[in-house]
Design a protein around this nucleic acid. Structure first.
Length: 821
DNA sequence: CAGGTATCCTAC
DNA sequence: TAAGGTAGGATACCTG
């Protein structure tokens, strides 16, 4: 029997059979079924080429045909490398896991190419496939817990236009004993994104039964994605630990308590690894067939919230929700709560299993990752949990394979020493400036890469410059040479151009969409394309990417600096006033002498200036027009009243933007800025003084003084405690570490990397005394002098422009300064 | 109390 | 031993 249809690939692995290698790809079909694709006929290989430059007729080392693991050596084929065209042999091996060893043994005589690409990637690379594919294969028996399993070959898979897959999501939460680390209860909410239906389950039996029932539920409901709040660092690890503990050496029991992977429980040996969730050294968890997405991680990336607790993020996203107003269980007294009111704890647990689902939908985490997967042509798991370089690899390697370019190993190039020089930041003039037009370069770094044909494959190495004449290439301001596209068109410029036009297609799709679903789809896709385009520069300027060289990054930024400095110079020569500039933007004052409508004049000036200085592949755009711009004179810190294209206040860099600040400061500063922009410095100063005086007197709710900083740290297995000394030179000198320690001492969970909230209670002592902020047990007192000083410093920087120092603000009058003269 | 170091977070 | 970049402001702590 055949099965035909469109599927979205979640993740994959390979299996070594006797004479072949099988790829297993787990997917969710458009029709809602979970489908396991067993791909046959793909053989593992890598490539070899002699070291150094190649001269025709030269001898090469003996081909490695005697190795038992090698089944065939094919070639040679001439391929491009940074040392010129070279003969490349394709070496087939019996199994993918044999590659590292052989690679190692051959590396003395041969340069290895394509030798570090995970085997499953070959599906996407060789077939030029993406996350969404159409398959037509023979249904086969499978012991794995899926709806359908089919056997296919690569020619039974075709590209499919992306579609919103009806994922099944499993969101869960555990409540655990502080005294014994045991699991007290658990809850899970399973959502079918196809129908929108949810089912809810709670578990409150003995620990082993809870683990078994959770595992059973995972296997029965067959989810594609596992989520929950902070599961990466807490719940997944706890499940692993407790399942191992209750199972001891009983393998069957371990399978019943921990067998979450989408594979048969009868798997033997190595294959069984993926039945159990694992987390190597990476951030993300791995298990066969499913993708683990932590709602905390997604929310922090999408929202950059001031604090990162589930309650804070939920209230931020759902301020109206009644659920959040309900009395909470005190997590710091969980054992007591569990003993006294288990029903409430279970209800609380269920709520905390459901909220992550709501959060993930609100920030559109699933659809965004799916769109990135579609654009970068990777699986959902790679999109959700992979690195930026894996996304870029996916596009670049498939192009290299199709255009005869050798793929070097990651780490094969010389490591970049020191930093490369970055963008140019112009000094900002302190004070108020009126009618300022902001001109921006459109996609500056991608445009330069396209325009100057910058790529690993177009760079002319000094060793090869004898083979080129000066008209073959362009020299960057740093002296690096990149050949013209007539000689060789770079892969990166080509890919970026393709992405740019893809984005245009989706933007048009958005405009022409007939319904919201279609508009949203195109929006997700255009956004994913934008993200990906902007990732190129960073990856190619990094020190360890396989297709990079420090000249690439250096040249891109050098050309960027040259472009922007030239324009600033020209504007200055014309008598225009450049107020500020950062990397790809120029802030210019509109000449308004004798003008009746300055706003209109600014719009016209903005457009005409942008047009005058635009060049091919260095296109300037008039993005924003401000009636007033203010800065106290520090780069990357300014505020403006935007009047075009819309009315809004724009603040950059200042404390209002910072998540390690506190609400009372950010709100106060915003209001001060309003007065400043309204040209009412007196009101600004009065407000500053009042605000400072109120906090000093202790009149401010402590809740408005919560500060928050992220805290690193790692679990020390041997000593069974959190270790901060790996991440901090002097851990006790760090406020957030002291706050984290206080939380840990209370028996509350600590998540490395998560922001820790605290109140300063006494800054006279050094290091200053702080108390962690816990919703269940709010801090009552604060150090008024400390907060007053902090406000005065921040406000003072602004009011200094109107001749009021921080000291004067604190004193509430100008007497101090008068006397000091 | 000035100056140096470590760290956080932001703008681009 | 895992991996997009640099420029920049600001704070807390420590030292002499």
């Amino acid at each position: 029997m055949r099965w035909k249809g469109d599927v979205a690939i979640i993740t994959g692995r390979y299996l070594s059979a006797d004479e072949s290698t099988i790829m297993e790809l787990w997917s969710r079909a458009r029709n809602g079924q979970s489908v396991l694709l067993r791909v046959h006929g793909v053989r593992p290989w890598f490539e070899i080429t002699p070291h150094g430059r190649w001269k025709d007729g030269e001898n090469h080392p003996n081909l490695p045909e005697t190795y038992e693991e090698i089944t065939e050596v094919r070639g040679p084929e001439m391929k491009w490398t940074y040392l010129g065209e070279k003969p490349v042999w394709k070496v087939f091996v019996k199994q993918p896991f044999m590659v590292p060893k052989i690679r190692q043994e051959l590396s003395g005589k041969w340069t290895i190419l394509s030798g570090d690409i995970p085997f499953v990637n070959r599906f996407f690379l060789d077939g030029d496939l993406s996350m969404h594919v159409t398959v037509d294969g023979e249904v086969c028996e499978s012991e794995h817990p899926v709806d359908v399993c089919i056997d296919i070959s690569m020619d039974e898979v075709k590209h499919c236009e992306p579609f919103p897959a009806p994922f099944k999501i499993f969101s869960f939460d555990l409540e655990t004993s502080i005294a014994h680390d045991t699991i007290l209860c658990a809850a899970a909410v399973i959502e079918d994104m196809g129908t929108g239906e949810r089912e809810r389950h709670t578990f409150s039996e003995d620990e082993q039964t809870i683990l078994e029932n959770l595992t059973k539920l995972v296997r029965e409901t067959d989810p594609d994605i596992i989520t929950g709040y902070n599961i990466d660092n807490f719940d997944m690890g706890r499940i692993l630990d407790r399942a191992n503990f209750v199972s001891g050496n009983d393998k069957e029991k371990k399978i019943r308590t921990l067998g979450w992977g989408r594979v048969s429980t009868d798997e033997q040996g190595r294959r069984r690894d993926t039945l159990f969730p694992t987390r190597g050294t990476s951030r993300a968890w791995n298990m066969a067939g499913r993708c683990v997405m932590d709602a905390w991680w997604q929310a922090r990336q999408a929202l950059r919230p001031q604090r990162e607790t589930l309650k804070f993020v939920s209230t931020l996203l759902f301020p109206e929700s009644e659920d959040m107003q309900k009395m909470d269980v005190d997590a710091s007294k969980m054992d007591e709560e569990w003993k006294n009111r288990p029903e409430e704890v279970i209800e609380y647990c269920l709520r905390d299993a459901e909220l992550p689902l709501d959060i993930m939908h609100k920030i559109q985490a699933f659809r965004r990752k799916e769109a990135v997967a579609a654009v970068a042509k990777v699986s959902l798991d790679t999109s959700a949990n992979g690195t930026t370089s894996q996304l870029i690899d996916s596009l670049v390697i498939r192009m290299a394979d199709r255009t005869g370019i050798g793929v070097p190993l990651t780490g094969s190039a010389e490591r970049k020493e020191g930093q490369i020089e970055g963008g140019y930041v112009h000094d900002v003039e302190a004070g108020l400036h009126r009618w300022v037009a902001i001109l921006d370069f459109k996609s500056m770094y991608p445009s330069i890469m396209i325009g100057k044909n910058i790529c690993y494959t177009t760079r002319i190495d000094d060793m090869l410059s004898d083979a080129f004449s000066p008209e073959d290439y362009e020299k960057s301001p740093t002296g690096a040479k990149f050949c013209h596209d007539g000689i060789r068109r770079g892969m990166v410029p080509k890919l970026l151009e393709d992405l740019m036009s893809q984005r245009d297609v989706h933007k048009a799709g958005m405009r022409n969409a007939s319904d919201e679903a279609q508009r949203s789809y195109h929006d997700q896709m255009q956004y994913a394309v934008k993200i990906l385009m902007n990732s190129f520069y960073g990856v190619f300027a990094s020190g360890f990417y396989r297709f990079t060289h420090r000249q690439l990054g250096e040249s891109i930024t050098a050309w960027a600096r040259q472009n922007i400095k030239t324009i600033i110079q020209k504007l200055g020569d014309e008598g225009q006033h450049v107020v500020y500039s950062d990397t790809d933007s120029i802030f210019v004052k509109t000449p308004v002498d004798g003008v009746t409508d300055p706003r209109q004049a600014m719009i016209e000036f903005g457009h005409s200036t942008a047009e005058r200085f635009s060049e091919k592949s260095a296109e300037l755009e008039f993005e924003t027009g401000m009636s007033v711009f203010f800065s106290h004179g520090a780069k990357k810190r300014y505020v403006g009243q935007v009047v075009w294209p819309e009315e809004k206040m724009m603040i950059k860099g200042y404390e209002t933007q910072r998540t390690d600040s506190f609400r009372y400061l950010t709100e106060g500063m915003k209001n001060i800025f309003k007065h400043v922009l309204a040209d009412d410095s007196e009101a600004a100063i009065n407000l500053a003084i009042e605000t400072i005086s109120a906090v000093k007197k202790g009149d401010v709710p402590v809740r408005d003084l919560i500060m928050s900083k992220s805290c690193k740290g790692r679990w020390d297995r041997k000593r069974a405690k959190w270790d901060f000394s790996q991440d901090y030179a002097n851990p006790d000198a760090m406020i957030q570490v002291r706050a984290a320690r206080a939380i840990i001492d209370k028996g509350l969970p600590f998540t490395p990397g998560m922001k820790i909230a605290y109140i300063v209670t006494n800054a006279k002592n050094r290091p200053m005394e702080i108390k962690p902020w816990l919703e269940e047990d709010p801090v009552a007192e604060y150090d008024g002098q400390f907060y007053a000083d902090r406000l005065a410093t921040a406000f003072g920087r602004v009011t200094e422009a109107f001749d009021w120092s921080a000291k004067e603000l604190l004193a509430g009058n100008r007497q101090t300064s008068l006397f000091s003269f």
